[in-house]
Design a protein around this nucleic acid. Structure first.
Lengths: 100, 100
DNA sequence: TCAATATGTCGTTGTACGACGACTTATGAA
DNA sequence: TTCATAAGTCGTCGTACAACGACATATTGA
């Protein structure tokens, strides 16, 4: 499963929680958060602290792995990110210049 | 790379940012956060919102994948997490869940 | 029917977070 | 040396968040 948004993570949490037969209250107890937090996390709350999210996933027995990604930024305003090789090389070459 | 804590994510961000030859200011600009936020995120700030973290990673061209994990909860107070088959089965039996 | 459970939602409150600005240190170039 | 950039840190402030408690719906079972 590929995770791009908080909603993805929320769906993952819900899916795994149900697969394990846990209710929200029990999961909340184990993770050490409030039940409401679980509700909102599953709903894809954008502001959920990454620390709690990681704890939750770990409690559910789900591991997160990072993979270099050849094709970034597919669907977002997220950025003009991509990799901008020119900028990178320029910065590397001259190290300092770039001038903003 | 396996991500377990905010520190792991911070290290990942720093590593990828440097690999791409970006400075904190530029990355912050692209992600849409303050430079200070990048500093703290790289330092493994516990509270960083998962939404921003995901945006950052995506900007860096890093994808996150979830994998079911056979061996959970290695080093944390994190819990008696694991899977607790008994509880699961009990819950399932009681409800005739199947429902899913 | 009523009772219990699971989930979602609504207020309230204290706290932590993120943005902004400025300062400091370190490194490298002119 | 001086100057510019990069990175880290501090203080302030407004806002978002997580916890708590309570209530509203299903849904299921007695």
């Amino acid at each position: 499963m590929r995770l791009r948004t908080p909603s993805d993570i929320g769906a993952l949490i819900r899916e795994r929680r149900r697969a394990l037969g846990l209710d929200q209250r029990t999961l909340a107890l184990r993770v050490g958060v409030s039940r409401q937090w679980i509700v909102e996390a599953e709903g894809g709350k954008r502001g959920a602290p990454v620390g709690l999210v990681l704890r939750t996933l770990e409690t559910l027995g789900v591991g997160l792995r990072a993979g270099e990604d050849a094709a970034p930024a597919p669907g977002g305003r997220t950025v003009g990110a991509a990799v901008d090789i020119d900028g990178i090389l320029a910065a590397h070459r001259r190290k300092g210049v770039a001038k903003r």
